[in-house]
Design a binder for these strands. Structure first.
Lengths: 192, 192
DNA sequence: TCAGAAGCTGACCGATCGGACAGTTCGGGG
DNA sequence: CCCCGAACTGTCCGATCGGTCAGCTTCTGA
């Protein structure tokens, strides 16, 4: 239990950084903070990584890659299939990379400029276009944006808009299906 | 047109700070940045305000007060009325204080700890309980959270999740009604 | 006319940031 | 036994942060 899921010092650093970035933000986390969490010196971090940005990049790499993969996979689907697959895939992906998403969204304005976000942007843009294509009106586009923006925020780790008095105590699968059904209802998809 | 809606140097400082906080975040904005935008020295800011935090507090004060007012007003309504009034009031309020909301949400983890956010938290909690009371299942709670989290993000100024290739070019009133109807559909309210 | 307050500036302060670097510890192969 | 490279530390650096302070204009009212 004391051992992390990642192995080695590099893994410990990535775990600690992920925890701190998600909790206090990228800007709000110093190398000293990470070093203190790991139990090593600040210089040790810079021995294993090229810098603070490199830690963030390696941290987000799997999530960014997964989003890009889903993006590519959705490109070859038909109109109606795209919508359901997109919603399910999006919800699933965000939930699988909760921590990374939390880090990504922690400092939205600055991170939108970050190169690592380009893949997620492309994915979101495509999803948005597919979902909004059902109707020419801006209403569909807004509904799609609602889903795109609310799902990640809800999946943020302890960071919820409007701190609830009691947290939602349900399993991942149930939350996943609830989110999918709610999103389908928002977008007026079939079965809603 | 060159004159701000606020009068005097204090108003210019608040306007510039609001713009910069919303664009680059509270942490990402230095007093030098604000001073540069206003066209005065950094010391001038600290002559008019007690510090950087004081600028933020005065900036958010009207929004915080408005949220607290809506919170109090919703406390005296019946079950069914609460829901529609809550949605409409919430959407309306967020849109009226777009810039303040953008600042508020720019650094979510840190700002949740901020005293100024307490009023908004209370408001959100009450709204959440009222909306989720329709059903004991966590589904209603999640749907309510979706609305609570997505509406502010969509209303963020140039900061959207998934940068759109083209911005939504509709008037405030239309966006307001679209958001309200989409939220009602998400929550399975009548008329959806 | 002039005293004094208001408004503002340039210079400076301590703290902290990300990062650089020389030196130290230490386990394993020749 | 020696030594080499990986892992790591303590220390220092320049930049930047929020904030302080003495002093300089500029306006105003007695």
């Amino acid at each position: 239990m004391s051992r992390s899921t990642r192995s080695g010092t590099r893994g410990e650093i990535l775990d600690a950084a992920a925890r701190l970035f998600a909790a206090t933000g990228f800007k709000g986390t110093s190398l000293q903070d990470i070093a203190g969490e790991v139990g090593c010196s600040k210089a040790a971090l810079l021995y294993h990584f090229d810098g603070k940005d490199a830690i963030l990049a390696e941290l987000l790499a799997p999530a960014v890659e997964a989003f890009a993969t889903l993006d590519a996979r959705l490109a070859g689907l038909g109109d109606d299939d795209v919508q359901l697959a997109a919603v399910e895939g999006y919800v699933d992906l965000v939930m699988r990379f909760r921590r990374e998403v939390t880090v990504l969204y922690d400092d939205i304005p600055a991170l939108l400029q970050r190169p690592a976000f380009a893949g997620v942007q492309g994915m979101s843009d495509r999803l948005l276009d597919a979902l909004a294509a059902r109707s020419p009106a801006p209403a569909a586009r807004v509904a799609a944006l609602m889903v795109l923006s609310s799902v990640p925020v809800i999946c943020m780790e302890p960071i919820e808009i409007g701190v609830r008095t009691e947290p939602i105590v349900i399993g991942d699968d149930e939350l996943r299906s609830i989110l999918t059904r709610s999103a389908a209802r928002t977008l007026d998809l079939r079965g809603a």
